[in-house]
Design a protein around this nucleic acid. Structure first.
Lengths: 148, 148
DNA sequence: GTGGTGAGTTGTGTTTTCCAACTTACTGCT
DNA sequence: AGCAGTAAGTTGGAAAACACAACTCACCAC
């Protein structure tokens, strides 16, 4: 019998279901820059207002951002990252690093100053041994490893 | 005069323009697993065949994957990551880490065995000082820092 | 000569996305 | 008092992207 073509079980795919839609990660980026308000997020990302509304609701529903009322009548809100949202910023750093290297090799648009005095140059390591980690260099195990 | 609402210059946004569409990063994931062929990528990701075709073409056009003919008559190809594509796997690792922690806290679907003997537990550090890096903890500079 | 594999392409809907305009309730200025 | 501006959306219609099944074409194994 032909096996069901069930896709691979995978945390990457599941995470992208939450935050992989257009604009979602840019919302997280803005919040990480300290931007708090709807109109500013619209301006800085270029997202359509209605789409932004739905992205904000989805991110809130999944605990990545939190909305705080700062005014009644009319109701006005500020958006903040939750701890889970702050952890997502790791993804942004690594995306930024890739784009800086491959799309703007001579003039990265933004630098982040690290406490060590240098500009942050992100690197992904295995926290056990401290050596560089990279998907594909080693072998997968677990129920998503063999999708068939 | 009202300033043009020009979105923030940003390598994150630019990278997402290339690989942020649905399925693109899952293609990179499959290639990093060693999968090489069209039909297998279809099966393991669940992507529609026509969409997959367009994603593969775009990734190829931007030097993230490379296509190698392994058969003439009919023409048949294998897909491989380029060095730039391999670097993108860092993004996947960090996405996986987030999903493992927040969506599958008790049962991550896939483990990657690292050469140190442990399961890879990815962490993003500043390569200068070795301490954990995280977007938002420090201050941005450069022309994308103040978008207005 | 029948069935299967492999890498697509085509046609047809359905769903998202985009964009501009509109709304509501203030606040600040004059 | 009257007007402009801010803020956070909502609404309606057009455009683009996506999904799905079916089809193709050339081979290969049985």
């Amino acid at each position: 019998m032909p096996k069901d073509p069930v896709p691979r079980e995978c945390s990457i795919a599941d995470t992208l279901d939450l935050v992989g839609e257009r604009w979602s990660l840019l919302v997280v980026r803005e919040l990480s820059y300290g931007v708090r308000r709807f109109d500013q997020i619209v301006r800085n990302t270029g997202a359509p207002r209605d789409i932004l509304t739905s992205r904000l609701r989805k991110l809130e529903a999944h605990g990545i951002i939190r909305r705080e009322r700062y005014n009644d009548h009319p109701a006005r809100y500020e958006y903040h990252l939750t701890p889970a949202g702050v952890e997502l910023c790791d993804v942004l750093l690594v995306l930024m690093r890739w784009g800086d290297r491959h799309l703007h090799p001579d003039d990265p648009p933004v630098y982040w100053q690290h406490s060590c005095g240098h500009t942050i140059s992100p690197m992904v390591i295995c926290r056990h041994c401290g050596n560089e980690a990279r998907l594909g260099a080693h072998s997968p195990t677990g129920r998503g490893a063999q999708p068939s």
